[in-house]
Each structure stands twice: as structure tokens, then as C-alpha cells.
């Protein structure tokens, strides 16, 4: 099993959710995060003058998938979350040792 973590633009959440749903992944976890990459920060205004905030708000989506689905899931997130501008985010993929469903105690692939 793999964990796919995608940092995406806030406005792409609905599209990414839909694309994952279409390939059978309903269960996701979404977190509000802040971060920076190549995209420059935001310029905000004080009463007079301005200041720069270099951490931008993003969303992190986590979904655990069976190994053979990892490519498909990644491709689906990429298609849904991409604009082509800087700031589209990144996807991280890492191995998952086990998954346990709290309600039933099922483990491994059955619990994904």
C-alpha cells in the first residue's frame, strides 16, 4: 500500500475530490496547510504601506491506495489539480506498512 499526499491549490479541492471518486477512492483526509515553493508570497496591506507574507495557504490531501493504483491516482490528481502556473503544488508517495479500520479491526488491503 502507498500513501499519496498531494499539496494542492485550495480552489482545486472539488475537482480533485471528484476525480478520486471517479476512480473509486472516496476516503480521503484533507488538511489546511501553509507552505512555500517557487510561487512568490502574498503582498498584504497595513493601514498605510504593505508587507509580504511568504507562506501561502494550500490544502493537503492524503489518500492511501493499493500499490497498483498509485500511478492511476497520481495521474488523476495531476489532471484535476493542474493549472500550469507556479503554485500548483506537489505529490509525495510513500510506502505504508499497515492499515487498520478502527470499527472492524480489518487490516491491510481490506481496510484501504
Amino acid at each position: 500500500m502507498k500513501k499519496v499526499e498531494a499539496i494542492i491549490r485550495e480552489e482545486k479541492l472539488e475537482a480533485v475530490k471528484k476525480s478520486l471518486e471517479d476512480i473509486g477512492y472516496m476516503g480521503i483526509t484533507v488538511t489546511e496547510v501553509s507552505g512555500r515553493g517557487h510561487q512568490k508570497g502574498l503582498v498584504l496591506q497595513w493601514r498605510a504601506g504593505e508587507y509580504r507574507v511568504d507562506l501561502l495557504p494550500k490544502l493537503k490531501i492524503e489518500v492511501v491506495v493499493v500499490d497498483e493504483d498509485a500511478k492511476k491516482v497520481t495521474a488523476s490528481i495531476m489532471t484535476a489539480a493542474r493549472t500550469g502556473e507556479m503554485g500548483d503544488g506537489k505529490i509525495f508517495i510513500s510506502p505504508v506498512e499497515n492499515v487498520i479500520r478502527i470499527r472492524t479491526g480489518e487490516e491491510g488491503i481490506d481496510a484501504v
Binding site: 496591506q45 493601514r47 498605510a48 504593505e50
Partner: peptide
Amino acid sequence: TWMFLSWRQRKPAVLGAVT
């Protein structure tokens, strides 16, 4: 006036209008 001053600098700031 303050709103226009902030607007001229950048955008019509809410913080500017209330200040």
C-alpha cells in the same frame, strides 16, 4: 480619503477605510 490613499498605493484597503 484614506480608502483612496490606499487604493492609489495598491488596493482599497478595509483596514484603511476604518482607520
